[in-house]
Design a binder for these strands. Sequence first.
DNA 1: CCTCTCATGTAAGACGTTACATGATTCA
DNA 2: TGAATCATGTAACGTCTTACATGAGAGG
Lengths: 178, 178
Amino acid sequence: MSVKYSILGLLHYEDMHGYRIKEHIEKNFGYMWSVNYGQIYPNLKKLEQEGLISMREEVQNGKKGPPKKLYSLTDAGREAFQEWLFGSPERSMLLRDPFLMRFVFFGFGDKERALELIDEQIMAYEGDLAGRLSKKEKWRTKDVFVNQLAELGIEMNKMMLAWLKETRKKVAAGVQEQ
Amino acid sequence: MSVKYSILGLLHYEDMHGYRIKEHIEKNFGYMWSVNYGQIYPNLKKLEQEGLISMREEVQNGKKGPPKKLYSLTDAGREAFQEWLFGSPERSMLLRDPFLMRFVFFGFGDKERALELIDEQIMAYEGDLAGRLSKKEKWRTKDVFVNQLAELGIEMNKMMLAWLKETRKKVAAGVQEQ
DNA sequence: CCTCTCATGTAAGACGTTACATGATTCA
DNA sequence: TGAATCATGTAACGTCTTACATGAGAGG
């Protein structure tokens, strides 16, 4: 259950309410995950019941919308987070990707269409890379880990592009042969 | 629902029963996904009901275990598969990884412990890479796409290793500073 | 007036994982 | 005899997504 611990993690930055948590994730980690209220609000409720976070209602007179429910970490929450953070390391599994899922089976379909999809993918990654590079300086923080994750995004992107282009070449050559 | 279409994809190779499907996935795509019977058998039943695959029971006298239920693609199944294969392309999202999930928050924990976990990760990826390289020749098929996926696994691995080592350096330097 | 943003939430369903239950055969 | 392999499956649980319901204030 990563959402649970992600919430605990984010609350280290500052006290937040559900809406802000989603916003924060989208802005800062949007390139690696997405969350929705269907996950956030039930999890906040649960975390509070478990005593890992505590809630205080911010009744803001004159401001828009319903009262914010601001959550903050409790000591128990900090502890639970630390345990998770450095606890039993799960093994990694990159490479779970909807495009690659299909890619394995491209051999059972039309090669021309496969080339088209590969080209689309190349364009998408090129746009992505440009976006990441342009934001790179703007996003620089004091946190090595956050910086390095951004760096990894760029590296990953470059690698995928190189691979896609190489793949394109090989597939095109195979088409010619026939 | 990728399991559904993965089954349809695998049945292009040959008729299979549930047990064999799991085995095949583990052998050939084990580095990118895992499946379990809780997914396979219900999906087979559903696919049959939808008319995308058909079943024939192989009663094998003298052989071990219950009779195999061999499934094969129907024409409708082939069609549905082609639609999925080249249908509306979803956008990719690499970088969903349990280690990286934690990594973002390493700044909130002990740096020495972070270094330890990074080292563990490096070792794991090194073992992985060695395994992939050794199997590379053995796994070579006529299928460009399958070959390229294996290649991608290797490239991904190399990139992650380079990144982890660079990260290790930067984190270690940060520790020294204090 | 209408739409956008801020803010809360729930319900239904799709998807995945874990853990069991069953039973025959093979092999040490 | 006991464990491993082959082969079927289900039930319970956990997670995630989609879609809806509500409502106030701000701005065009």
